[in-house]
């Protein structure tokens, strides 16, 4: 966790410095804004992880000497097979094709996306924690 937070904060510091230098040498706003955006992208998760680094007990994957007994327990819950990502993906494709070929495709896209959203919600409830 600590390595990752320092890594992300490094991203923030690097782009912050580069962004400021870039602004005062070029006064070009598009590049400056994108550099500052990249700095924020590092800053937000980086400070979140840094906070957790000091509020969380050492995880087995962070412990260089993790022993067998540390490895017991649940990793996580994983979903099984599901048709809904396919339906949602095709819905997204038809939604974007609507912009190219016209509104007649919109009902197909809407039906696919809506059914996928309902389907995946029902599936999650039935399957327990996801």
């Amino acid at each position: 966790m600590k390595v990752m937070s320092l890594f992300l904060l490094g991203v923030a510091v690097f782009f912050g410095i580069i962004g400021v230098i870039y602004w005062f040498t070029s006064y070009e706003d598009a590049g400056f804004l994108m550099l500052i955006g990249a700095a924020l992208l590092g800053l937000l998760p980086g400070s979140y992880y840094l906070w957790w680094t000091y509020h969380m007990k050492l995880q087995p994957e962070e412990d260089p000497d993790a022993a067998m007994e540390d490895s017991a327990g649940t990793v996580d819950s994983f979903p099984g097979s599901s048709i809904w990502p396919f339906i949602l993906g095709m819905g997204a494709m038809f939604a974007l094709l609507t912009f190219v070929f016209g509104l007649w495709l919109a009902p197909i896209a809407g039906a696919l996306i809506l059914s996928a959203l309902i389907g995946v919600t029902v599936e999650s409830r039935r399957g327990g924690a996801v």
């Binding site: 979903p79 599901s82 990502p85 494709m93």
Partner: peptide
């Protein structure tokens, strides 16, 4: 790891990618 962290999102990524190829 036993799988990617978000397996269904992973599947969605593939279908969006395939949609992009077809498009």
């Amino acid at each position: 790891a036993p799988d990617m962290a978000f397996p269904r999102l992973n599947a969605l990524s593939y279908w969006l990618y395939l949609g992009g190829v077809i498009t």
